[in-house]
Simulated scan of single mutants.
Amino acid sequence: MGDTSALDAQQSKLNAVLKLGGDPADLPFWDGCEVGQFMLHRCNVCQRAYWPASRCIEHGDESMVWVAASGRGTLHTYTIMHRAYIPSMKDKVPFVVGVVELEEGPFYHSNIIDCDHDSLRVGMKLMAKMALHESGLTVPMFVAV
């Protein structure tokens, strides 16, 4: 008999990703998050990195692999949310949603945490910090460096 607990865990993760509107092609990203590693989809021909899983605009999808990324980036833009648009966020306002330009090139949307809102600045250096989400997924959020 196979290891059904590992299969159940993977199915549970897939269900959580789908419930949040994610794509099964990104499961290696979520696997990486679970062990504290930010992953990007990269073309092995030109080294261009992508998020989410994609195909290289120059070389297609045959040379695409998931690779560990630095988890570092800069704040491209942000907004401070003062209203909870879904009930699960009611106790979390105000919170910051930012667009992070990753060191490897792609942009990633995430929460900026553990930072005084008045100190937020476009261009500030950030680092991914994994956090457990209510869905059961481990998700990258970003903190100031």
Rank of each mutant, 00 (worst) to 15 (best):
Q10V: 09
V17L: 05
E101R: 08
V17C: 01
Q11K: 14
G2I: 12
K125L: 03
I86W: 11
A16H: 11
M124G: 08
V139E: 07
E34T: 04
V96W: 05
G105W: 09
N111D: 06
R42I: 03
V99A: 00
V93K: 06
G123D: 02
H82Y: 11
E104N: 08
H59V: 07
E58I: 01
R42V: 15
V145D: 15
P140A: 12
A25I: 00
Y78L: 07
V17P: 02
L75R: 08
A25W: 04
P140V: 09
P140I: 10
R48C: 03
K90V: 13
P94Q: 04
L132S: 14
G22A: 03
L20T: 10
S54E: 09
G105R: 08
A68C: 09
C33K: 03
C56R: 13
Q10S: 14
A16T: 11
G71Y: 03
L14H: 08
E101C: 06
Y85W: 12
D118M: 10
K13C: 11
C115Y: 06
Q47R: 13
V35C: 02
P87F: 04
P87Y: 03
N44G: 13
Q37E: 15
P52A: 04
R83T: 15
L120Y: 06
P140R: 10
E58Q: 14
M89H: 15
E34M: 00
M39K: 04
V45H: 10
C33M: 07
W51I: 06
F142M: 12
N111A: 12
K92P: 01
H109P: 04
V97I: 12
A69D: 11
C43K: 02
A68M: 04
Q37K: 13
Y85Q: 14
G36P: 02
D116V: 10
